[in-house]
């Protein structure tokens, strides 16, 4: 593990944060009366698209694990399709979990689903980019002492912090402050976004501080 790796990690993460900021700023030039709270669903879509695009581009440029030997077109296509299916499945999975947590079953379905989409964007998309459609690898990364590189380590941190952000985001809902952002699912999506950004910021720093202690199996 070298410092250059950490630097690359930091730059990619900064780009991701930048993409989120762009998703807030750019639409207001094109769309009238765009704001995060009032046209929340539009923002969710735009943010999700931006973050996905940036993640894909970064993955193609940086190639953190340049491993796969078979690189025929058909293999890549099936892999890509598999990723898409996984993404959709994770959206539905999150949707189900939100309903289990008490989200309304029939009303506000679109809101809940878009919330699931944005959470999948923050968590599943980086996983798919880095690990591919391989559940075992995912489980390995998310269990204790399972990470094998700084990329996986940062993935672990950002994903967990997005989840924690979402989880904490549900707390203000019962409070009687009557603010516009307490409406389902705005506080949760904002929580997820803050968690994701926090994860992006924290993970390079954390890895940098702990670079002496971190030893990975493969390198």
């Amino acid at each position: 593990m070298k410092d250059t790796d950490i630097k690359r990690l930091l730059y990619t993460h900064l780009l991701c944060i930048f993409s989120i900021i762009l998703s807030i700023c750019i639409p207001s030039f094109f769309l009238e009366n765009f704001s995060i709270l009032e046209t929340h669903l539009t923002w969710l879509c735009i943010c999700s698209v931006f973050v996905t695009a940036v993640n894909l581009v970064l993955y193609l440029i940086v190639k953190p694990n340049a491993s796969s030997k078979r690189s025929s077109i058909s293999y890549k296509v099936t892999r890509f399709l598999k990723c898409c299916i996984y993404f959709l499945m994770s959206c539905f999975f999150f949707h189900v979990i939100f309903v289990l947590y008490g989200a309304p079953l029939i009303e506000l379905v679109l809101e809940t689903f878009l919330f699931a989409v944005i959470l999948s964007t923050f968590t599943t998309v980086p996983c798919l980019c880095l690990l591919g459609p391989n559940i075992k690898a995912w489980l390995r990364v998310f269990s204790r002492n399972g990470v094998t590189s700084i990329w996986e380590n940062s993935l672990q941190i950002t994903t967990i912090s997005s989840f924690i952000g979402t989880w904490l985001g549900a707390f203000p809902i019962p409070l009687d402050w009557e603010r516009p952002w307490q409406v389902w699912p705005i506080s949760c999506t904002l929580g997820a976004t803050f968690g994701y950004v926090a994860g992006l910021v924290i993970s390079p720093l954390w890895i940098y501080w702990n670079r002496k202690q971190l030893t990975y199996k493969n390198n």
Binding site: G102, I173, P174, L175
Partner: peptide, 19 residues
Amino acid sequence: GASSFIEEEHQTWYFLINT
């Protein structure tokens, strides 16, 4: 400590057991 959380304490418990 928050009156709303006392009024809606069931939400806290449902949330916790789900987690």
